[in-house]
Design a protein around this nucleic acid. Structure first.
Lengths: 233, 233
DNA sequence: TAAGATAATATGCATGCACATATTTGCCTG
DNA sequence: CAGGCAAATATGTGCATGCATATTATCTTA
């Protein structure tokens, strides 16, 4: 009858998924209780629970206590994308990674970041400007501000051997943050750094991370032309 | 001693997390076995297992059978981003949504997609070109190919009242797909459609979805200037 | 009749146990 | 010493059960 062996929670998940995409259970419709499903599949309720939890996590079903489980009306298209450390991303492509620090100084935080990045108005932050290479070709341009109040150790770090990104993930774990992707045109500086014609459309990523309430760092990465950020859904 | 109550799996997860970010357990270091942790916390091994599974899922620890659990060397930065239905995204901004279908015809699949989108070489696919508005200002431009072999019902749908995206999520659930983000320059057509100067850098998203092995649709969305895709991490 | 208290119910979570599976370690043999 | 087999071990998974909790339905009371 069913092709998947239903005596493992993944098997049960596949079968449930089959019924959902096969419209055996309509969107918005309530599906049988865990207990009923457990009886049908001849397994423990725990096992059905595991399968349903997994489906709920991916957004295909919506679960509410007492109200039961129902098929999501419009399955929210969730994608988990892993933002790799650039070095690993480049090396995974079979190319050699290298980065160079272009600028490094202490300066006040630019006004543009005052809203999102709350530091005392007179405090200086560590500014870093660097370029990441893959096989000696520019791969990404990075501008970063580091809050020395939360990461005092950054002042002593050189960031020559190890990139700021890697140094931070290893020395200043964050609790949460914000991430944004957008497009921008290469200005003259970017054009020179990334070896792109002026005005070329570039893919950019901005990230702020926090440890609790304290901002750690603000980073803007601008990738060389042709970059695509991919993921599976 | 510990602030979190450790008699729930989330509490145990928090405590483990605290030890990881607090460098009680160094990156790369092996942490105690499930059984030992269970004894320490005075709970069942299952409960520890649940907490560790969760941490492994978010990439903070790496688990291997027999080899044990160790703290990830460089915690991969994972972000789950939800790709909303455009109508919902626009309405969430408090603006009114509208879309218009610019073109609709049957045509052979463009050669560029032959690799990723496997349909019989002589089969026609449904091509849709449309524009999404927020408050009567262009919000995103969409080009889409629909495989009629897997979604025959699409031929009868008008896509005037309901957008292709919404129609598809409700009528052709997908099992998996690929997603890519990138930047491109506005050509003359895009420039006119999106009310942007020619050459403006635009944020674009490409998506292919499948039902099993069968491709369902290929969509390319190009957003109006200034668009930022955000998420929390 | 309306509002609040109470019971019923479905899912969420925890426990203890057993067995499966993968991987390392070390022994054993040729 | 090399190669391979086997035991030890840590995690992965399943099962049966009970309690916790949130939500709905029902009953009681003013």
């Amino acid at each position: 009858m069913t092709v998947a062996d239903t005596n493992s929670w993944t098997g049960i998940r596949e079968e449930l998924l089959r019924r959902i995409v096969g419209r055996v259970w309509q969107p918005g419709e309530q599906i049988p209780h865990e207990a009923d499903l457990a009886e049908e599949f001849g397994c423990a309720r725990t096992t059905v629970n595991r399968a349903l939890r997994d489906l709920a996590e991916s957004g295909l079903v919506v679960r509410k206590r007492r109200a039961g489980t129902r098929v999501a009306l419009n399955p929210p298209q969730k994608a988990t994308l892993t933002i790799p450390v650039l070095r690993e991303e480049v090396e995974a492509l079979g190319r050699t990674y290298r980065h160079s620090l272009l600028e490094r100084d202490l300066r006040p935080l630019p006004p543009m970041l005052h809203g999102a990045f709350q530091v005392p108005p007179d405090a200086d932050v560590l500014y870093l400007k660097s370029l990441h290479f893959a096989d000696d070709r520019p791969y990404a341009f990075e501008e970063r501000y580091i809050n020395l109040a939360t990461v005092p150790g950054a002042q002593a770090a050189s960031f020559e051997a190890i990139s700021a990104n890697e140094w931070l993930v290893q020395n200043a774990p964050y609790s949460h943050g914000d991430l944004a992707f957008f497009a921008l045109s290469a200005d003259d500086d970017l054009s020179a750094q990334l070896d792109a014609a002026p005005g070329t459309a570039l893919f950019a990523m901005e990230r702020i991370t926090f440890a609790g309430e304290e901002p750690i760092t603000h980073a803007r990465l601008i990738f060389a032309p042709g970059y695509r950020m991919r993921t599976a859904i």
